[in-house]
Amino acid sequence: MDKKVSARSQRTREQIRAAAQRLFLESGFMGTSTDAIMAEAGVASKETLYRHYANKEALFVDVLEHMTLEQARPAAVLADLPVPRDAPSLRLGLTIVAREILSVMVQPEYLALLRIIMAESPRFPHLGRLFKDAVPQRGLSIMTLLLQQAREQQVVDEVDKDAVSHALLGGLLTYALLDVFFVGQPAQPELLERADAVVEVIMRAVLPH
């Protein structure tokens, strides 16, 4: 019986969170009321809502934590990339990472999440760190590891790996922001080819001359 109650409670919590996520992405934190969340989730009483979340702020934090973890999963898979033992394998590894990161960055859900973080981070300072750790920091860590491995294999010159990784990520972020985020246009398939071009610029900078 306890297991059934626990499972039902978990389903209700997930139902509330999913409804809140839809509304937060659509209207932002301030534009979403608890009454609207209850109606969207099919929850009959505020008592039920507050049994799972102390207030709207707690629900908002849970939604963002859930979303950032969802966004982190594709990047986490990249941790299994093989060690780059020559220039072509390094180029391939960086290209896979760059394309994955850019494809995540231009997803409507990611951009909507970014808008909310930018608007609400003064109220919830820790959300900025949470957001950074989800995709950007994981991407930086993977790129830095690939460059470190490539240096150990004497594929690249001695370089500032942190600066190179940030330069690569910055190039991708520029395309996501300028071409999609600020103009509000959907990402075009050829946008991912820009990731390849950014990687090629980086390769020319790190390979022995």
Rank of each mutant, 00 (worst) to 15 (best):
A87Y: 04
E100L: 03
E109T: 10
R13M: 03
G139Y: 05
F131I: 07
S103P: 00
H52S: 05
A18F: 04
A20K: 01
A119L: 10
D2N: 09
K4A: 06
N55I: 06
P125F: 11
Q188F: 13
R11W: 09
P88H: 09
L191Y: 05
L169E: 07
M67Y: 00
A195F: 12
I117F: 01
L59R: 04
G139A: 04
T174D: 12
A76R: 08
D179S: 11
P122V: 13
L147K: 07
I96C: 11
M67P: 00
A19N: 02
I142S: 13
E14T: 07
M118D: 11
K132Q: 15
A195R: 03
L102I: 09
E26I: 02
L172E: 10
S27I: 00
V77Q: 11
E65N: 14
A76G: 08
Q148L: 14
A41V: 10
F131T: 10
K3C: 00
R11V: 13
R8Y: 06
G184C: 01
A167Q: 12
E26Q: 09
I116G: 10
L25H: 03
K132M: 08
A163G: 06
T174N: 07
S165I: 09
I117H: 00
G93F: 06
I142N: 10
L130W: 03
V198T: 13
K56S: 06
M203N: 04
L192D: 14
D80K: 09
S9A: 10
E57W: 03
Q15W: 13
I96W: 09
E200Q: 03
